[in-house]
Amino acid sequence: MSVIHLDNRLAHYEVFGRGQPIIFLHSWIGSWRYWVPIMDLASERYRAYAFDFWGFGESDRRGDQFSVPTYVAMLMQFMDRLGIARTTLVGHGMGGMVAIIAAYQHPERFNRLLTVATP
């Protein structure tokens, strides 16, 4: 289990493999565990990351700032803290919305974007 401090709160994340980074973003009522099978496959060629948004999984649950814009900021802080300059994003549901907005706001930070079941 890995944790990182973002905005003075603990965020849980996991990382598999080596290579170019790819970040997986879970949906509402989910966690990083949703991505384990695909992270395992991706880790053969990529460094696969997945983290729990605040309020989910093993990340901090304090506060009420659980919104897509807050999660976009969380993603960008996560990338900055881990030194990920540019990556591919894969998002499911709400995580897909976070990915789309992050890529729109910061196109220079993302190689590709894949969303699944995004509203």
Results as ranks from 00 to 15, higher is better:
Q20S: 14
Q77P: 01
A85K: 11
W28Q: 09
Q105I: 02
R109E: 09
T115V: 15
D80Y: 04
R47G: 04
V36K: 11
W54V: 02
H92T: 06
H5K: 15
R81K: 14
F53M: 10
L82M: 03
G17H: 03
P107Q: 10
D64N: 14
Y104E: 13
G96F: 07
A102Q: 07
G96L: 07
I29S: 14
S67F: 07
E44L: 10
N111S: 15
R62V: 11
L75S: 07
I22D: 00
D40R: 13
I23H: 00
A48I: 09
R81M: 07
G96A: 06
H92W: 08
T115L: 04
L75N: 03
F51P: 00
R81D: 07
A48V: 06
N8I: 04
D40W: 09
H106C: 11
P69R: 05
A102W: 09
L6N: 02
V72G: 07
D64F: 04
T87E: 00
P21G: 02
I100S: 05
A102S: 07
A42S: 15
G57N: 04
V3M: 10
T118D: 02
L82H: 07
F66G: 05
R45F: 06
M39E: 03
R33Q: 13
D40T: 14
T115H: 03
I84R: 04
Y13T: 02
S31A: 12
G55I: 08
H92D: 02
F24I: 07
I84F: 02
F110L: 06
N8F: 08
G19R: 08
I4T: 06
M76K: 08
G91I: 03
T115F: 02
T87M: 08
H12T: 08
T70D: 12
R47P: 01
V90P: 01
A11M: 15
F51I: 02
D60A: 12
R45I: 05
T87G: 08
A102L: 03
L114G: 09
P119A: 10
V36R: 13
G83V: 05
F24E: 07
A73T: 14
V98K: 01
S31F: 03
M97Q: 15
